[in-house]
Design a protein around this nucleic acid. Structure first.
Lengths: 339, 339
DNA sequence: GTGAAAGCGCTAACAA
DNA sequence: TTGTTAGCGCTTTCAC
């Protein structure tokens, strides 16, 4: 393996100069730089990240902690982040929790991240106070994507508002009995979105003068199967809702499936609306509140890179806009529906 | 930051012994080991991967090169790989090409991977001869997932057979005009699956005594939108097929959509079958040939770890089984259908 | 079973 | 603009 020494010997200069030239630092004559580059190229020199990391204390690597990559939302955020990191020459270390509590424990508790990465992106998880303590002890920029965490750098949508938009859409269509499918408001994979969305839903109902019925709130665990089950229970009630708002498109898709199983037509018998604008949403004709997923990854990565570049950078809270996308799973309430 | 020296000083031993104890190497007394562990714990010692990497030449990191993480198939493979890598204490560096030719170029051409990782997993890409040359010059274990590459370690399904299974299913149902939606058999994101699947399709038709019609073979680019478009053109032909075999579930889902747009009922007017058993397949009631996706990631990771552990390891070609999953998008050909 | 010592390949002061 | 000189924190012979 050819090292910086070989290049230095080749151009008859010190390794310090070669290092400077290679990294494009100032204070190197144009001619020297050119000679170094040429030599490095010719010798097939490839820098050693380990050595550079050891000497500089920087790994040029960013950790991305994600609940489950197989969920489209997370994959899309990762993709967005990867793009901007790669552009800046940073590598992306993926930590996939896959719903496994012990995996989460390992990532946060043991200092898996210490001395490994320059910054961390945490997707849709709300670190516990203990985990937060560990994260800040890392002494590295951390950005939370998709969750609210005052005092920390975050990139997200206004979940309360998104839920309100979805619910209002249903109310505007004349629906009064509106079911809600959400997720645990606490737990291993701890999001803040679930509770914010529930709040948005409840607020709109209240404002509309509809008394909210706890029986109409079900837990779909943010998965398709969970949404299906939750919808099944909701739609089999004698006083079944004429519309269902699912806090994620995946749960909404499950709800669609449940409706079909029960022989209910969508949107004639029951309206369904979700949140995300999942890539599959249009193929289900799903009405939803779209959020800029990919963009959240990009912004988050940009944010940690900025923090890395600027010593007195203060955490920002970025909120990206959402937009109602009306497709064909929602319609005006039929006179007979929902009693 | 506490280093190995601090621990050594604390237990009044050399750093060499501490290093051995910490890594669980033989030749350390039980008592010493216990004291070292306790001290490390108490002092909050965290090893530096950079230093270890520099000294040992091993990074305990594996690169995973993936065409696009947002595609469920790839995300699932990554998830499988991550699980086994994490178990063995390896980190996963994600390189997402996202359909970008220059990204691919960067990963393979420039020696981005050199001195960075101990092994590489390449998903569904068939490296060009030039890229292969570079990969083997890495001198590291490389496993290809989802593509055939003689002489290299690969993990995949028998694509030809999977396609044959899908096509036979349609033939068995009495279909004679069977459309095919595949992808470019070469290109930037160069798979071997497309051509193998096309071959499987053609062979079955031939065996069935059905003359294969080039007009019935369309390119869906392995995306939903592409599949939709391809199906649209196929199903609008005057001599439209009574069944369509899409080489991936995503394209099949697009085909389902196209059929609906054209007012064709599935499976009454047209049968549709895919390959993958995508997580969404059951929600579309899609008949498909299932492949063990997650498992391919696990096997591939296990393979490179084995190669890393064993000096005279020879590349293995693992072929995982597939299985026809009959749902409700395929049916016996109607007397009137397909002319 | 343990230790001394020599690096691994680079960066970063500090000089010149 | 360039060079000298120390390390960064660990692993790995080679002794003992």
């Amino acid at each position: 393996m050819t090292s910086i020494k070989d290049v230095a010997r080749d151009v008859e200069m010190s390794t310090a100069t070669v290092s400077r030239a290679l990294r494009g630092l100032a204070g190197v004559s144009g001619e020297t730089r050119a000679r170094v580059m040429e030599s490095a190229q010719r010798l097939g020199y490839v820098p050693s990240p380990s050595a550079a990391g050891l000497a500089s204390g920087q790994t040029r690597t960013v950790a991305v902690v994600v609940p489950r990559v197989t969920q489209w939302f997370f994959a899309a955020v990762v993709q967005g982040a990867e793009e901007v990191l790669r552009e800046s020459g940073y590598d992306l270390l993926l930590y996939n929790l896959a719903g496994d509590a012990s995996a989460r424990h390992r990532v946060f508790e043991t200092s898996l991240l210490t001395k490994r990465v320059d910054a961390v992106l945490v997707l849709s998880l709300k670190p516990s106070p203990d985990e937060r303590e560990r994260l800040s002890r890392l002494g590295r920029p951390v950005t939370i994507v998709g969750a609210d965490m005052p005092g920390w750098a975050t990139v997200r949508i206004d979940d309360r508002e998104a839920a309100a938009t979805a619910t209002s859409h249903l109310v505007d269509l004349g629906h009064e009995r509106i079911g809600y499918i959400g997720g645990a408001t606490e737990g291993v994979l701890d999001f803040t979105a679930p509770s914010a969305r529930l709040t948005g839903y409840r607020c709109v109902l209240e404002k509309a003068g509809v008394e909210s019925d706890p029986c109409l709130e079900a837990d779909g665990g943010f998965t398709i199967a969970g949404g299906q089950e939750a919808a099944l229970s909701l739609l089999q009630r004698p006083d079944r809702p004429s519309a269902v708002f699912a806090a994620s498109d995946e749960m909404a898709i499950g709800a669609l499936r449940a409706a079909r199983e029960l022989g209910l037509r969508v949107p004639e018998d029951v309206s369904v609306v979700g949140i995300d604008d999942h890539e599959m949403a249009r193929y289900f004709d799903l009405t939803t509140v779209a959020q800029p997923v990919h963009e959240q990854g990009r912004v988050a990565a940009t944010q940690v890179l900025a923090a890395l570049a600027d010593d007195d950078w203060t955490p920002e809270q970025v909120i990206l806009p959402t937009e109602l996308v009306v497709r064909r799973t929602t319609a005006r309430r039929a006179r007979s529906a929902g009693r």
